[in-house]
Computed example of a mutant assay.
Amino acid sequence: MLSISGRVYSQNVTFGFKTKQEPIENAIFEIIEVQDGRKVGESIGKIYTQGTVMSTAQIGDGVAQTLKNYFKTSVKSQNETKQAILVNVEQFEIKETKSTNTVAGGELKLKFGFYVKGSFDPIHLMDYEGGMNYRRSINRLDLAERVIQQALDNSLDYFNQWINSQALNNRALAGSVRLIIENKAFESDQDTVFYDFKRPLKWSDFTNRPKSSSSYNAMIFTSLAMEGRPFVEDGSIIMPLIIKVYMLPGQSWVRDKNDYSLNHEQRHFDVVRVVADRLTNNLQNLDVNPENYEALVNDAYFDAYREMNKLQELYDGQTSHGRKRDIQERWNRMLDMALKGDYTALENVLSE
């Protein structure tokens, strides 16, 4: 039986509570912070202390600190990857009414918000609402204290059951991240031509009308896309990533159809393929965790997109859109090497 007698100090009653009678063993979480989200300095209510006298009820050294001490001693974790939890106290209220001159009836209400505490903003997990109704002799303050103790024990048991049931499938509780880069072949159609080593570009892929305002012989629209939707499996975030390299026939056109010009446009397509391969390598070498993986994956993609645009500008600028045949031949060799995984020459161009 756990109890700490209520102490009356000039119309104030201070309650305390001890460690949970049956502490939670081998917990997968640790409550490291408690915040009191109620009004600053707010008591937990008023209770009868004698006859018709009602006194202000308070908790130990304050709700936040006293609860933190309670959680710390009531949860025993052996798990090295335990989740750091923040608890926000949204309601902690006790109300009593007098049944007779010697008996009081009371109601305790609790509402706690549980959050994962990480390097960034806390992530909301769940809310707990609970409480108890009771009757006690007015001179038995210890009974009110036991009610508070039991309600707190119930809240901790509930959260422990909840987090154990959610640990393997809740994204906020995931302990690791695995990126899976999928190299899928996509079937081309009249609207989109996907890059395929076995299927080089054809002039029939350029279906738009030539722009009268342009002095160029041909124009190709190429681009890079990345898709992925994370899911949780066995406590780990799985992030499948699909990288697409494509050109749009409806936005690509040609005037004079010759092999030399077709090669120049093919090399624009090759640039995107090379950038996609470099992006794949970068993604495979990322050091990711549940807190940073989205930002790092997005950064890698946007870096690749910027690199693609820079290379396209350098390619057209140095070859004068294919007019400088010797420079065009240099780019042909450089891109052939890069398509085989040797980026030395390409990186030299990027660093110039």
Rank of each mutant, 00 (worst) to 15 (best):
V8T: 10
S10E: 15
K18M: 12
Q21P: 00
A27Q: 07
F29R: 06
D36G: 11
E42K: 15
S43W: 09
G45A: 00
G51R: 08
T52M: 10
V53A: 08
S55G: 04
A64M: 05
N69K: 14
Y70D: 01
S74H: 10
Q78C: 03
V87Y: 06
E90L: 10
Q91T: 14
T102H: 04
T102V: 12
G113N: 06
D127C: 07
R140T: 12
L141G: 08
A144E: 06
E145S: 11
E145C: 04
R146H: 06
I148S: 06
I148F: 12
Q149L: 06
A151P: 02
L152G: 01
Y158T: 12
Q161S: 11
R171F: 01
E182V: 10
N183I: 01
D189C: 06
F194M: 05
P200R: 03
L201F: 05
T207Y: 11
S214D: 07
I220Y: 00
S223L: 05
S236Q: 15
I243E: 04
P249M: 12
W253Y: 10
V254H: 09
D256T: 11
S261T: 15
V272N: 03
V275Q: 01
D277I: 00
N285Y: 04
L286N: 08
V288D: 00
Y293L: 02
A295F: 15
A304N: 04
N309T: 07
I327Q: 13
R330L: 01
R333L: 12
G341E: 05
D342W: 02
V349E: 11
V349I: 12
